[in-house]
Every structure is written in C-alpha cells, then in structure tokens.
Amino acid sequence: MTISALLSQYGDRYLLALVTTWKLTVLSFLGAFAIGIIITVLRVCPIKPLRAFGDFYVQIFRNIPGAALLILLVYALPYLNIVFPYNTCVLIATILIPSAFCSEHLMSGINTISPGQIEAARALGLSFFQMIRRVIIPQALRSSVLPMTNLLVATMLTTSLASQVPMRPLELTGIVSYINTRAAGGVMAFVISAVLYCASAVIIGFAGSLIDRKVRIQR
C-alpha cells in the first residue's frame, strides 16, 4: 500500500492511535512517578523492613519482562478471583514497570547530593523535614530531569504492550498488526507508526534537555 492510500483509509485511526499512545504514556508516567516516589521514601526511611520491601519491589518490577507481567495480570490473576478489564491490566503493567525504574533514578538523584551538605543543613539547625524539603528534594529532582525524560520515552515504548491484549482503542503498535492482518499494509503501515513514535520521543527528549539546561546544578 502506498502512504497516501494508507492515510486516506486509516488516517483517522492512526490519529486516534497516536492520541491513545500519548494518553496511556502520560497516565502511566504519572502513576509510575507517584509510586516511584513512595517506593523511594520507603527505601530511604530508617525502618528496615520497609526498606527491604522497597528494594524487593524494585527488583521484581525492574527485572520482570513486560510480557510476563501482562500475561500474569490478564490470564493468571483471574485464578485468584482477581479480574481486571484489559485496559486496566495494561495500565497496571505500564505503571508498575516504569515505577521501579523511576525509583532507581530518584535514588541515584539522591546519591548525587554530597553528605557534607546534609551535615551543613543539620549544623544550621534545620530539622529533618526542613532538610529533606529544602536540600534533598530540590537537588534530587533537578538532577533527575534527564533520567526522567528517558523514563518518559521508555514508558511510551512500554505502552506498546497494549497491543498484546484486545484493548480498544488501538494504540500505535496495535494498529499496525490490525492493519496488517486485515490487508497487506506492507512496510508503510510500520513506517507511519514508527515515525509517530520517533517524533514523540524526539519531542520529549528536546523538552527534557531544555528543562535540564535551565535547572541543572553546577558542581
């Protein structure tokens, strides 16, 4: 199929797919970020069992393949009487996996802060929470802009998992297999999706480095 034939026949669907991918990406990222922060707090808190739980959580979701997690959610959980609709299963998978990486990025962001600055905050009489709020969090956040940008792109790529279940509306990967099983869409069907993915990634990357340049901490 030529590109114009594809676009005239499936143009609207592609647009919807792009918006779906974006929506899923943003939702997943926000969820992953929220959980990532909570898990990170657990991992740095002085309560040993909570630390261990946070570490455990990260190791599980950092290392489980997306397909394996999605299959567990969709096909295995119902045997425990836990049934989610397909869309929810996808969203859970695309939140849990990036959340582990989010926590890893935040941890390395925290690790860039020099212990000396923590001591200085203490010596000035800042309370623990004042120190966290004024010294730790601003520095950790500012040094994790680029990792978070990469995480956003990675989350977008993870949302292609949705093509593995009959989720509607279709997202950018799902639509390709949809078109190709219907008619021989050929190379072009892929190229359109790929270009849309790439363009999104480039935009995210560009915005990320712009923000990073603004807030980066000189050392």
Binding site: S114, G116, Q117, E119, A120, A121, R122, A123, L124, G125, L126, S127, R134, V135, P138, Q139, R142, I217, Q218, R219
Partner: peptide
C-alpha cells in the same frame, strides 16, 4: 529532635569542604 536542632542553630560551623548548598 527539636531541642537538638535549636542547639545547633546557636552553634556556627564551618567545614573543610565549605558545604554550601549547590542548588
């Protein structure tokens, strides 16, 4: 606790590595 923080606020400290907040 609060008492310790208050005490520290009355004692100035200067470090070898300056330890100014870099952000």
């Amino acid at each position: 606790g609060r008492q310790l923080a208050e005490l520290r606020s009355k004692i100035g400290m200067v470090f070898q590595a300056f330890n100014l907040f870099s952000h």
